[in-house]
Each structure stands twice: as C-alpha cells, then as structure tokens.
Simulated assay, not measured.
Amino acid sequence: MTDLGPVGVHLHHTMTGTYPLRLLDVLFCSERVAAVEYGYATPTDLASGGAERSADAFAATLQQEGLAAALEAAEDCRTIRYDRLERVVVFDGGAVGREKLLLEAGDDALSVRVHGPLDLDRFTGAVRSVLEPHEATVERRRGLGLTAGGLF
C-alpha cells in the first residue's frame, strides 16, 4: 500500500506483541495512521542492539528513499482510516515504564510501547495537529497504560 499520502508524524522504534516482539513504526499520514512492521525482536536482539539497528535502518529507508520504499521493505502494514479512529491515548510510562501509544477504532485497537527517545509534549501536539480535522480525540495520561480492570 503506497497511497498513504505524506507522513505528518513519525513515531520511531516501537514494539508490540509478545515473544517475539514485533518491531514497528507508527506513521500518521494524511487520511490514516499506519503501523508498519519491519522485524522481530528476540532477547538476543534486545541484548545486542539488533532491534535498535533494525529500527534505525527502517527510519533511514523512509527518510532517504521515501514511503513507498519503506513500505516495500516492510513485513506488514496495518492501517486505520481517520474516519474510523476514535481515540489516541499517549501514556507517559509512569516512573518506571516506557511510553505507550494506544489507537482505538471501535472494536479494533493497537497498542505499542515506545523504545526510542520521545518528547511527549511535542509528539502529542503533532498528533493533535494531524487529527484536528477529524473526530478522533487525543489524550495524554500518566502511568503504564495497563488495562487490568481499569486499575492502571
């Protein structure tokens, strides 16, 4: 899929899932958000810096060769149109955790943990700017973003 339009916000080096973790970047484009998966992270990858190298290689492809080349090199791309997206929640990770992004679209949701540097204020503002013409809300919350009966 190369018809995503220009990338307005690029969230770099995130992970989702369980063993092995999936590496992905989240791209807020003109009419949809795309979660672009480009690899897996095993404990060996995490310990040796392999996950970071994979994330940097994807970002370099996106920056130097463009979105079409990055999508071609990706393993998978999941998109949510903004007319379906209901809510974006950015968690600060609390005192001990990593930042988390949650995308909610009806019964469909995607959550990712951020493993790269992130300026939360700047990121949240940029996402609000991209989503301003749409009905989706953008929230910033404290904590880990765990959903165990609303306790976290």
Rank of each mutant, 00 (worst) to 15 (best):
120 L>T: 13
102 L>M: 06
44 T>G: 03
121 D>T: 10
106 G>V: 10
19 Y>T: 08
90 V>N: 03
137 T>G: 15
64 Q>C: 11
125 G>Y: 04
55 A>M: 05
3 D>G: 15
11 L>H: 08
115 H>E: 15
83 D>R: 10
86 E>P: 02
127 V>N: 01
84 R>M: 14
19 Y>A: 09
128 R>I: 03
39 G>K: 01
51 A>Y: 00
73 A>H: 08
124 T>W: 00
67 L>N: 06
76 D>C: 01
122 R>E: 15
147 T>Q: 04
76 D>L: 07
102 L>T: 03
34 A>S: 10
103 L>C: 06
61 T>A: 13
70 A>K: 02
57 A>S: 15
17 G>P: 05
9 V>Y: 06
91 F>G: 00
102 L>D: 02
59 A>I: 01
74 A>D: 02
98 R>L: 09
33 V>W: 08
1 M>A: 14
105 A>W: 08
136 A>Y: 05
8 G>F: 05
35 A>E: 12
109 A>P: 00
5 G>Y: 10
12 H>E: 11
115 H>N: 12
146 L>C: 00
120 L>D: 02
34 A>Q: 06
141 R>M: 14
116 G>D: 08
108 D>A: 15
22 R>K: 14
118 L>V: 10
37 E>L: 01
116 G>C: 03
16 T>A: 13
19 Y>W: 09
15 M>K: 08
132 E>P: 09
36 V>N: 05
50 G>A: 08
62 L>G: 03
149 G>T: 03
2 T>F: 06
81 R>Q: 14
148 A>P: 02
40 Y>I: 02
20 P>W: 05
42 T>P: 05
114 V>H: 01
53 R>D: 08
9 V>W: 03
21 L>T: 05
33 V>C: 12
40 Y>D: 00
84 R>Y: 13
55 A>R: 00
77 C>G: 00
78 R>L: 13
17 G>Y: 02
100 K>Q: 10
82 Y>W: 14
132 E>L: 15
113 R>P: 00
24 L>T: 01
106 G>S: 09
75 E>F: 06
18 T>C: 07
127 V>M: 05
103 L>A: 06
78 R>Q: 13
46 L>V: 12
54 S>Y: 01
31 E>Y: 10
2 T>Y: 04
126 A>V: 05
70 A>Y: 00
75 E>T: 05
56 D>P: 00
39 G>L: 01
33 V>F: 11
89 V>Y: 04
18 T>G: 12
51 A>S: 15
85 L>W: 06
23 L>V: 05
65 E>H: 12
4 L>I: 09
33 V>S: 12
96 V>Q: 11
52 E>Y: 11
141 R>A: 12
86 E>T: 11
8 G>C: 09
39 G>R: 01
50 G>C: 04
5 G>D: 11
111 S>R: 12
17 G>W: 01
138 V>T: 09
95 A>S: 14
63 Q>V: 11
47 A>C: 06
133 P>K: 12
112 V>Q: 05
114 V>G: 00
28 F>V: 10
53 R>K: 15
149 G>M: 04
21 L>I: 07
55 A>K: 01
143 G>Y: 04
116 G>S: 12
38 Y>H: 11
143 G>M: 09
60 A>K: 15
112 V>T: 10
8 G>L: 12
89 V>W: 05
151 L>K: 13
58 F>L: 05
